[in-house]
Amino acid sequence: MTHSMNNNDLLTIAGKSYRSRLLVGTGKYKDLAETRLAIEASGAEIVTVAVRRTNIGQNPDEPNLLDVITPDKYTILPNTAGCYTAEDAVRTCRLARELLGGHNLVKLEVLGDQKTLYPDMEETLKAMKTLISDGFDVMVYCNDDPIAAKKLEDMGACAIMPLGSLIGSGLGILNPHNIRIIMESANIPVLVDAGVGTASDAAIAMEMGCEAVLMNTAIAAAKDPVLMASAMRKAIEAGREAYLAGRMPRKKYASASSPMNGLID
């Protein structure tokens, strides 16, 4: 192993360091067995979950997600998916904290409409204010607006997570220029959250200098989710190494790789 992937290249979020720069969701899998296998293959250490009403009176012995993806092995990142108001998002975060025994790290997302699942930044900023005063460590899903991102950082976010493209769309990173501008001014980790479709999208995000990538559908909706999880792990590592290595400058014309002297006549 070369020095670029040494053990000192860690992702730090809310004071905790991680070796993996791939964060994964647990939605849309066929069953819990597939969820577990895909997450193991991804190498992820931070795993998102949703909080929902317990089905009363149905299969009390049904295994719980947290029995498979256990909080002692993974950092559980509860999300506020499905929340369209700051109030609902804050309520969900408080329930998640109780559910996870006082754990303060949450992924805030307040959505604007069901068709785009685009973030509603006005409600996101409102929720952010309450969550910070309530002692949460907040990773925020946001649009790729550098001004909104700066506001979230100033309010005390522990990570900014602009979308690459719409949640579950698999369209990749549609506005890399904005993500670059956000990264230039940020002093906290910037992650691409949403939009990754395949391994090259993840590698591009990392080559740009993103600290990490969060994805769910790209793995869960692949024909072979476990194999795609492995591909994503490699893409994230490759992209990170390429970023650290520093790419060659782009040139307009050819530049021979083999020396010109000593050519046979």
Partner: peptide
């Protein structure tokens, strides 16, 4: 909080919400 489940008495018409973690992104 979990520690207060035993000491919390329910009243008629109380609205109780019980949640758990499920798959999500």
């Amino acid at each position: 909080p979990r520690s207060q489940h035993s000491s919390t008495l329910l009243q008629a018409d109380d609205q109780v919400e019980i949640v758990h973690a499920i798959g999500g992104g």
